[in-house]
Design a binder for these strands. Structure first.
Lengths: 159, 159
DNA sequence: CCTTGTTATATAACGTGTTATATAAATCGG
DNA sequence: CCGATTTATATAACACGTTATATAACAAGG
């Protein structure tokens, strides 16, 4: 088995490593969602959660709130509108802005997620890294080792 | 200014957040490299470093060492071969495997990076998060705040 | 009021990751 | 030693992020 060079290089490849860990967490989270029989991609939940939490708001504001670029949000919104969970209508006072809000179906989806899915995900992630402490690189190594030993979707909320 | 929902959701959106931080670190690292007048993309350095450290090795082994998929490595290798920094030749004993090694130009590039670029990057990242301790989410918040306050490429190795 | 500039969203082109599948070489069993 | 399976790489199609730029609506000055 080959040495993990990204880990070995420490701070030098921290960006690559954090991105990689983030992708693994997202992939495992997707598995949890799939197992629960929901049709929405894991990556879309933060957007739905943002709209739910911050109320109807424009695309640009949503981009700020999520820390991603405006074109990224525009594309995600378009997909979620196609799925029927979001609605985007021009603001009455400014036709340039498009106010994004949840449809009834979208609200139902978020309510279900709040009830059943998000607690499960949060518990699994907390199980993985809630007790961690110490230097960053050590914690990252613990997360990688933890995921390799037992993926997120196999970590039960109530063991 | 809108609330940062990805941060606010804590463990629930940890994957998204780590991916986002990784992307920012990579983008800042790219700026450092650009400022030093080098033509290679930041994302390619881990691959070059892996070949330099582990010696000539096959694409599949490289994928293992870097923790990414084989097709991803195959594509990166193709680009670096086009740039003239890597060479990929069939293994003498097994024509399926392609052994990847540094060209003279590639070796020169790596030697330069080791000398001038990597220490600079490592120092900047260490300046950002070398002293961190405590729970993971707190450290992530400190990294985000630190990057917002002073990007990696403005953090000098010798202050 | 009309030009000019600014702001909000949309679109295009690209980078880099993924999974699924095709192709070619090696290996194994009859 | 030939056909079937396995292994290594290549290719295709997609996801999701970026930057740069186009379009449309608003705002402000002459």
């Amino acid at each position: 088995m080959a040495e993990d060079v990204v880990r070995a290089f420490g701070f030098l490849s921290l960006g690559t490593r954090m991105k990689r860990i983030g992708e693994r967490l997202q992939a495992d989270t997707q598995k949890i969602i799939d197992e629960m029989g929901v049709e929405i991609a894991a990556s879309q939940y933060p957007l739905l959660a943002a709209v739910d939490r911050l109320g109807p708001l424009a695309i640009g504001d949503l981009a700020d709130a999520m820390g991603v670029s405006q074109p990224g949000v525009t594309r995600s919104i378009a997909q979620l509108v196609d799925l029927g969970v979001l609605r985007a209508e021009p603001a009455p006072d400014d036709q340039r802005r498009k106010l994004v809000s949840l449809t009834a179906q979208g609200q139902r989806l978020v309510d279900e997620a709040k009830e059943a899915i998000w607690p499960r995900i949060e518990a699994a992630v907390a199980d993985l890294c809630g007790k961690l402490d110490g230097p960053l690189l050590d914690q990252l190594a613990a997360i990688e080792d933890g995921l390799a030993a037992l993926p997120l979707n196999r970590r039960e909320p109530k063991p």
